[in-house]
Amino acid sequence: MQITRRHMLLGLTGAAGLVGAGYLLAPTRSGADESALLDPVEAHRQALNGDILLVDIRRPDEWQRTGLGQGAVPIDMRRKDFVDALLAEQMKRDGLPVALICARGVRSRRVAFALAQANVGPIIDVPEGMLGSRAGPGWLKRKLPLVAWRG
Results as ranks from 00 to 15, higher is better:
44 H>K: 01
28 T>Q: 15
67 G>L: 13
20 G>Q: 15
39 D>Q: 07
65 R>C: 12
47 A>V: 07
77 M>P: 00
36 A>V: 00
17 G>Y: 01
48 L>V: 11
57 I>T: 01
64 Q>T: 15
38 L>A: 03
41 V>L: 14
87 L>V: 04
30 S>T: 07
15 A>D: 05
52 I>W: 05
81 D>Y: 07
86 L>M: 07
56 D>Q: 13
33 D>N: 15
70 Q>H: 09
22 G>D: 05
24 L>N: 11
14 G>D: 08
17 G>M: 03
77 M>H: 15
14 G>K: 09
57 I>G: 03
37 L>D: 00
87 L>D: 00
66 T>S: 13
25 L>P: 02
37 L>R: 14
71 G>P: 03
13 T>Y: 13
87 L>Q: 02
18 L>I: 09
61 D>N: 11
78 R>C: 10
39 D>L: 06
46 Q>R: 14
35 S>Y: 03
69 G>E: 10
30 S>F: 02
53 L>Y: 06
15 A>W: 04
56 D>C: 12
52 I>S: 01
78 R>A: 13
57 I>R: 02
62 E>H: 01
39 D>C: 08
43 A>E: 09
75 I>L: 15
87 L>G: 00
80 K>T: 13
44 H>I: 01
87 L>A: 00
80 K>M: 14
17 G>Q: 04
84 D>M: 09
33 D>P: 13
27 P>T: 10
66 T>P: 00
71 G>N: 04
75 I>A: 08
48 L>I: 13
54 L>I: 08
63 W>T: 08
22 G>F: 04
36 A>P: 00
34 E>W: 07
33 D>S: 14
15 A>V: 02
85 A>Q: 14
66 T>E: 12
66 T>W: 12
55 V>P: 02
61 D>S: 11
58 R>K: 04
35 S>M: 08
75 I>W: 11
31 G>L: 01
83 V>G: 07
87 L>Y: 00
45 R>G: 08
26 A>F: 10
46 Q>A: 05
18 L>T: 09
46 Q>Y: 03
77 M>E: 03
53 L>N: 03
65 R>Y: 15
27 P>Y: 05
82 F>M: 09
86 L>D: 03
67 G>K: 13
76 D>V: 04
27 P>E: 14
48 L>F: 08
55 V>L: 06
35 S>F: 05
79 R>D: 14
59 R>Y: 14
24 L>D: 11
45 R>E: 15
72 A>N: 08
44 H>R: 07
41 V>S: 12
32 A>Y: 11
28 T>G: 12
21 A>C: 13
36 A>I: 00
18 L>K: 11
76 D>P: 05
37 L>P: 00
17 G>N: 01
72 A>Q: 08
74 P>Q: 12
40 P>E: 05
